[in-house]
């Protein structure tokens, strides 16, 4: 006996289990990053001098990274749309590009971090750098998590397309929702940490 509504939508809610599950998970993620944003506001309003992000951080690199994530978000949703059009090759291509862009994000982030350390800027230097490293660090962990999952469905997990295409398409939609959320967090992190 199988659990109902793993692929098909339940008539009265119009949802399948995984989609509702991932939205609930994202709701809790909102609160997780919400806690950190709240801490940021609390710390910033609590002191007289709060440095401008650009004093420590590189806006051009972060702009590049923003472009990487936005583009990866659109390729992610395209890979799902390709599955909807029964075009598995295009799915492979778009998911592959998504992975490359995500890795590009990590590479840029790596150079950003090492250049900070090189200049003697550490989390302990002041609370601005502390919250910068904490928030972007947690975000990077989410990016890495996303890469692992996307890679799984790009390579070994893609076999499911042969056996259960409906379920596979749903899974890509779910992964996509998560990936867009990671993008969404960055869209707010970018101005808050780099520009203000």
């Amino acid at each position: 006996m199988d659990i109902p509504y793993t692929v098909k939508n339940r008539p009265d809610t119009g949802l399948y289990n995984g989609k509702l599950g991932v939205w609930l998970f994202l709701a809790s993620e909102v609160m997780l990053f919400g806690g950190l944003f709240s801490a940021y506001i609390f710390l910033r309003t609590g002191v007289d001098n709060w440095p401008m992000g650009a004093e420590y951080l590189s806006v051009p690199l972060a702009t590049l990274n923003t472009m990487f994530l936005i583009t990866s978000s659109v390729t992610m949703v395209m890979s799902w749309a390709s599955l909807k059009l029964n075009d598995f090759k295009k799915f492979k291509m778009y998911a592959g590009i998504t992975l490359l862009l995500a890795l590009g994000f990590l590479v840029v982030k790596y150079f950003e971090y090492t250049s900070k350390f090189h200049h003697g800027y550490f989390p302990s230097t002041n609370n601005f750098l502390g919250i910068y490293f904490t928030m972007t660090g947690l975000h990077v962990l989410h990016v890495i998590g996303g890469i692992v999952v996307i890679f799984f469905y790009w390579m070994p997990g893609a076999k499911m397309w042969e056996t259960d295409p409906g379920r596979f398409t749903n899974r890509i939609e779910i992964v996509g929702l998560y990936w867009h959320f990671v993008d969404l967090v960055w869209i707010f992190l970018f101005p808050v940490l780099y520009l203000l």
């Binding site: 809610t13 949802l15 939205w23 909102v30 944003f37």
Partner: peptide, 27 residues
Amino acid sequence: YFMHLIDEKITIYWTLLATVAMFLVLL
């Protein structure tokens, strides 16, 4: 658009409404 919230189901809307309310409280 990417997450298709523009035409999502009412259950999701309710969930997110509660979340946004709590998020604003927390902030």
